[in-house]
Amino acid sequence: MNLHNPLLLDLAVKARLSPAALDDSVTALRECEAAVTVCAAAMLSEGEPERMREAVSRDMDCSDVVTATCRVLDRAGGGDAALLASLLDACAMACERSHELCAQHAGHLPHCRVCADATRKAAGACRQLRAGLTSA
């Protein structure tokens, strides 16, 4: 475990979140946010940005939702389990929707390959953390 902020260890325990799961999830989400931002920028700079408009939009939506989720997770869920559960569900959905389109281009666009991998991991991290909330 490489907790991104040692102060979160105590908060994670109080929020009934596994510190390791919290750390792994935030790491995956931050990597995802970087990947979707770079991917969207790369798609806009390519020869046919109009063709990639929906994928760019999904990447931008994913970036925004992931950022909001990270901010709440940085507070170890803020104590509102229902809000955190909904946010994790929305984050997983945003990652899955971005992944859906980038995975189609992963074979020929390196940025989409990286993005598809990062969004898949982030969606899984959200689902895993969400399951931990249910069982806590």
Rank of each mutant, 00 (worst) to 15 (best):
N2C: 08
L3S: 04
L3H: 08
H4I: 08
N5S: 09
L7C: 04
L9K: 12
D10H: 12
D10G: 11
L11C: 05
A12K: 04
V13S: 10
V13D: 10
R16T: 04
R16D: 12
P19N: 08
P19G: 09
P19W: 08
A20D: 15
S25G: 14
S25A: 14
V26F: 03
T27P: 09
A28F: 04
L29P: 08
R30F: 08
R30D: 12
R30A: 10
E31A: 15
E31H: 13
C32V: 02
A40W: 08
A42L: 12
S45V: 10
E50G: 13
E54V: 06
A55P: 01
V56I: 15
S57K: 07
R58E: 05
R58M: 07
D59E: 12
D59R: 03
D61F: 08
C62P: 01
S63P: 07
D64R: 15
V65R: 02
T67N: 13
T69G: 03
V72Y: 05
D74H: 07
A76H: 01
G77R: 00
G77W: 00
G78S: 06
G78C: 03
A81H: 09
L84T: 06
S86N: 14
L87R: 07
L87V: 12
L88Q: 03
A94H: 01
C95V: 02
C95L: 02
S98P: 01
E100I: 00
L101Q: 02
L101H: 00
A103H: 02
Q104M: 04
A106M: 00
G107W: 02
H108M: 06
L109Q: 06
L109K: 11
P110Y: 08
C112W: 00
R113V: 01
R113M: 07
V114Q: 13
A116T: 01
A118V: 07
T119Q: 11
R120H: 11
A122M: 06
A122T: 02
A123L: 01
A125D: 03
A125H: 04
C126T: 03
Q128R: 15
L129S: 03
R130M: 05
L133P: 04
